[in-house]
């Protein structure tokens, strides 16, 4: 079970000011995204967004609903292409999603036809066995290795071994997201993209998931891009918070209105002020309350 060990130390660069020591893991350059329908003027979603994210950073993107947070994440994922500008990952433009980026969406994060164990091992089987390899005699041995590794991840995610044979619909929302994180992490992605991954969870489960993801980030040093509409959640989890908002009217599209480093300790007295600043800047109409979103006090 050598691969189960996830104790990669946090990269030193993470604590350094962005852009000073290493080339950016993700570089978003003057990105504009417009959606258009024939016969109608295009609607601008993002307007000239530029951003560097460095290896090992935990970046939260916050903003009001519809401000383009998820669009930005989909650009990094290469699920969408910008109308203008470019998105580089490790210095090269992306053409389609690949295994460098793990992905945990809010919904449909697991394959419903596979058990928990098969969901987690799916990536390993596809990449290391493949369709043709499915007929080789060594397949069974490899599968057992993958399953052992997956069980390790399952345990790390706080799930029981008996959950391994369950189907996704037999799990609670929180358990499903834990499996989805394990499914992504087992592939050792360089970047983990989480799109409102905890939004559908109840407050208690959500707090547990927040602790888990922060611990995993500390252990693995994976670069995490976390989209949320909750400023407190963003501040509590991330090492850096980016707020998107519209400076002009709705037609102008969103841009970065705040880019804040977050103190390491969640007890830091400045955090409350930072949260307030994010709320005032990115949520002029008022942010959702913690009671609704379940995020603990930062």
């Amino acid at each position: 079970m050598t691969r189960v060990v996830m104790a990669r130390t946090i990269l030193d660069e993470k604590t350094l000011p962005a852009g000073l020591s290493t080339p950016a893991m993700i570089r978003i350059q003057d990105v504009v995204v417009e959606y258009g329908q024939p016969g109608k003027p295009p609607k601008r979603i993002l307007n000239g967004v530029s951003l560097d994210i460095h290896s090992g950073e935990f970046v939260s993107i916050v903003g009001q609903t519809g401000c383009g947070k998820s669009t930005l994440l989909r650009l990094v994922l290469a699920e969408e292409m910008p109308t203008h500008g470019q998105v580089l990952v490790e210095g090269s433009p992306r053409k389609q999603p690949d295994r460098r980026c793990g992905y945990v969406p809010q919904k449909y994060s697991l394959f419903p036809d596979r058990t928990v164990l098969d969901n987690i091992t799916f990536g390993l089987e596809v990449t290391e066995i493949g369709i043709l390899g499915s007929f080789s005699p060594a397949r069974r041995v490899r599968r057992q290795e993958f399953q052992l590794e997956a069980l390790g991840y399952l345990q790390r995610m706080g799930l029981r071994e008996s959950d391994a044979v369950k189907y996704p619909h037999q799990l609670s929302g929180g358990m499903q997201q834990r499996v989805a994180i394990a499914q992504a992490l087992i592939m050792r992605p360089k970047i983990l993209l989480m799109d409102e991954a905890f939004s559908a969870l109840d407050p208690g489960t959500r707090a547990g998931m927040q602790r888990l993801i922060k611990d995993l980030w500390r252990e693995t040093g994976t670069t995490i891009l976390f989209v949320t509409h909750n400023p407190r959640e963003a501040m509590m989890l991330a090492s850096r918070v980016i707020a998107l908002g519209r400076r002009g009217g709705d037609e102008d599209g969103a841009n970065i209105v705040l880019d804040l480093p977050v103190p390491e300790s969640s007890d830091d007295p400045t955090i409350a002020g930072l949260v307030q600043r994010v709320e005032q800047t990115a949520f002029p109409g008022g942010a959702e309350s913690d009671e609704q979103t379940g995020a603990p006090e930062a």
Partner: peptide, 25 residues
């Protein structure tokens, strides 16, 4: 669409996603 994107991020190619994710579902 999340399922298809997820497939790509787990290293699956176009045909793996077609047969191993979508057809099965």
């Amino acid at each position: 669409k999340e399922q298809i994107v997820k497939g790509f991020t787990l290293g699956a190619g176009d045909f793996s996603i077609t047969y191993r994710i979508v057809l099965k579902q």
